[in-house]
Design a protein around this nucleic acid. Structure first.
Lengths: 306, 306
DNA sequence: TTTTTCAATCAATTTATTCTATTGGTTGAA
DNA sequence: TTCAACCAATAGAATAAATTGATTGAAAAA
C-alpha cells in the first residue's frame, strides 16, 4: 500500500471515472488502473465496480476503505504542516541550560532580548551544575548550555562568549573598603565564604587562590546547597567576604549599600563563559542568535565594575 | 513522502540507531539512510541529529513529525483491518430492494432465514416501484432488487426466482364463492380494485385481462397510493374484488374469514419474480445466497394455494 | 597512534513506475 | 444488425526509483 495508491482511489471515488481521476492525479489512465488493481490485490478486496458506460460504483467495503484512505491522507497533510511550521529555525522551543552562577544574572537580560529578536522561539530554561547540564545536553534534553571553561566533552562544540573577572565582595565596614584593589593572596586569612562542591565557580576561585584551598578547613566556609545570592546576603550581614563573578554585580537590584566590591589587582583572576551545544545540532541559526544576544547583553564595557 | 519513509523514521526513533533500524525494517543501512535523507529534504526539516558514537537524537520538530507519522501508519493499519473484515463476502451490509407487491410477503420469511445463513450480513431493505428501484440499483444505492419480469436494463443482470400465479380475492359472501376457478374474462363487469400507476402488478393484471383496461373508467377502481393490504381489507369489507399475486396469501396472518381466494382457470395469469443486480457487482456469493434463500422461501409447492 | 563504530557515499543492479498504443467489452445510434 | 464512441484493461518499451555490497569519512575509544 502506498500513499499514491490511496490518492488514486480517492480520486476515482470522487470522479467516478478512471480517466478523469487519472487526469486529476496527473498520470495516465493505465497508471491509475494498474495502481488500483495492485492495491485491490494487496487488500484482497474489490474497491470499485467497473463497467464501460460511465458507471463506476464504489463497493460497500470500498466506501469504508476510501473513507479511511482520506483520513490517512489528511494525517499526512498534517506532517507537511508541522514541517512547514518548523522550517523557521527560530521557532519552536529551545531548551537552554545555564550554571547556577550565571543563570540568575544573564537570563533576566537575555530572555526579553531574545523575545524581541525571535518572537516565535519559546525558551525553556534550566539551571544546574555543569555536570548535570552537560549530561542533559548530551542526551538531547537541552539544546544548548551556558557554562564556563574549562569544558571539553566529546561531540560537544563550544564558543567563548565573554570573560568575566572575579571581584571581591566585602561589607561596607570591612577593612578593605578603602583599598583600590585586592591581591589574590590577601584572601588567605579572611573569612572567605564559597559555594559547595559541584559549583564550578568554587573550583575556579580556589584555583585562582590555591592557598585558600590549603586552609580550607580552617578559614574558608563552604556553603553547601547555597547560592551566590545567599552568600551575598551573608556578606551584607558581615559574616565574611566572598569572591563573585563580576556579572553578578551588573544588575542594580543586586547592589546593596552594605556591600562594597573590590577588583583584584592584575593579573585579575577570571573565567571564560561559553555556550556549548552538540556538534551536529541542526539549528545553527538559533545557536548563532544566542551567541550574538548574549554577547550584546555582556558588552566588554559593562563588565568593568566600578 | 511515502509510507515506507514514515516507517523508517519511526524505526530510527525507536532504535536510535540507523543500522538497527534498517535491520528492523529488513533493508540495508544505506537504503534507510537515503530514504530518510530524501524525506528530510522533501520536508525541509532535519528530523535526526546524527553523530558517530551511538548518539542519535531526535529533533524537536522531528519528534512531532514522528508522532504524526505513527498516527498515519496506525490509520493505514485500519485500512488493512477493514479489508480483512470485508474479505468474507457474506459480511457487511447488503441493501436489498423489492417492489411493493413482493416485499411485504417475501421479506418476513426471507430475513430471518438469511440471518441464520449469514449472521454477519446486515440487510437493509427498501420497498419502492420498479422504476425507482432500478434507478437506485444502477446508482449503486442498492446491491440487488427483487422485481418481476419484464425487466431489461443495460448493465443489469437478472435471474428468475419463481413464477407466481395470480389469484382472485373475493368477499366470503361473493357470488363466486362456490366457483372452483375463475376465467380471466369474468373479471370484466366486476367491482375490480387495482393499485395505482407505477405498480407493475397493476400493469400485469391489466395485461392479463385487457378488457378490464378498456373499461377502466367505469368498472375498475384504481386506488392510488394504496397497497395490496389496503385493497385486501376493502375486499373483506365487501367493497369489491381484486387480483393478488399468490405469494400474498402464503402467510396465514394475511388470511381472513371474510376473504375467499379463487384461482384462475388455466392458462393462469402469472408473473415471474426475479432478482436483479449490476453486472459487475463483486459480491457474487451474496447474490447466490439470496437466490438460494428466496427460492427456498417460495418452493413451488407452497405457491399452489388452496 | 590504531582500532572501532556508525552513517554517508558510490557504483551497479534490480525493481517499480509510467508512458503510448492497443485491445476487449459495452452501449447507443444509424 | 452494424457501426461508432466510450471506457477500462492490457502489452511492451522507456524511464525513474529503490536497493545493495563495498567503501569512505568522521569521531571516539583503546
Amino acid at each position: 500500500m502506498t500513499l499514491t495508491e490511496l490518492r488514486y482511489i480517492v480520486a476515482v471515488a470522487q470522479k467516478k471515472h478512471f480517466g478523469q481521476a487519472a487526469q486529476a492525479c496527473f498520470v495516465s489512465q493505465p497508471t491509475l488502473s494498474i495502481a488500483i488493481k495492485k492495491l485491490e490485490q494487496e487488500l484482497g478486496v474489490k474497491l470499485f465496480e467497473r463497467s464501460s458506460k460511465n458507471e463506476i460504483h464504489i463497493t460497500d467495503i470500498g466506501q469504508k476503505i476510501i473513507q479511511q484512505a482520506q483520513k490517512v491522507l489528511q494525517e499526512t497533510r498534517v506532517i507537511n504542516e508541522i514541517s512547514q511550521q518548523g522550517k523557521e529555525p527560530l521557532s519552536g522551543t529551545f531548551k537552554l541550560g545555564a550554571i547556577y552562577t550565571i543563570g540568575p544574572y544573564l537570563l533576566p537580560d537575555l530572555i526579553p532580548d531574545l523575545r524581541k529578536k525571535a518572537p516565535n522561539l519559546t525558551l525553556i530554561i534550566e539551571e544546574n551544575f555543569t555536570a548535570n547540564l552537560s549530561q542533559s545536553l548530551k542526551q538531547g534534553e537541552l539544546d544548548a548550555i551556558v557554562i564556563s571553561y574549562p569544558f571539553d566533552e566529546p561531540g560537544i562544540e563550544t564558543f567563548p562568549l565573554y570573560e568575566e573577572p572575579f571581584v571581591v565582595a566585602v561589607h561596607s565596614r570591612h577593612e578593605w573598603v578603602s583599598k583600590t584593589s585586592v591581591k589574590v593572596n590577601e584572601l588567605v586569612g579572611q573569612d572567605l565564604m564559597l559555594l559547595g562542591a559541584g559549583h564550578c565557580f568554587r573550583d575556579q576561585v580556589l584555583q585562582a587562590c590555591p592557598k585558600c584551598m590549603v586552609d580550607n578547613n580552617e578559614l574558608t566556609r563552604t556553603l553547601e546547597g547555597s547560592s551566590l545570592e545567599t552568600i551575598r546576603h551573608m556578606v551584607a550581614a558581615g559574616t565574611g567576604i566572598t569572591v563573585l563573578p563580576c556579572t553578578s554585580m551588573l544588575n542594580s537590584q543586586h547592589n546593596s549599600e552594605l556591600i562594597k566590591i573590590k577588583t583584584f589587582t592584575k593579573p585579575q583572576p577570571s573565567r571564560t563563559v561559553a555556550l556549548a551545544w552538540r556538534k551536529h545540532y541542526p539549528r545553527k541559526e538559533a545557536i548563532q542568535l544566542l551567541i550574538n544576544n548574549i554577547q550584546q547583553c555582556c558588552l566588554p564595557g559593562t563588565l568593568s565594575i566600578k
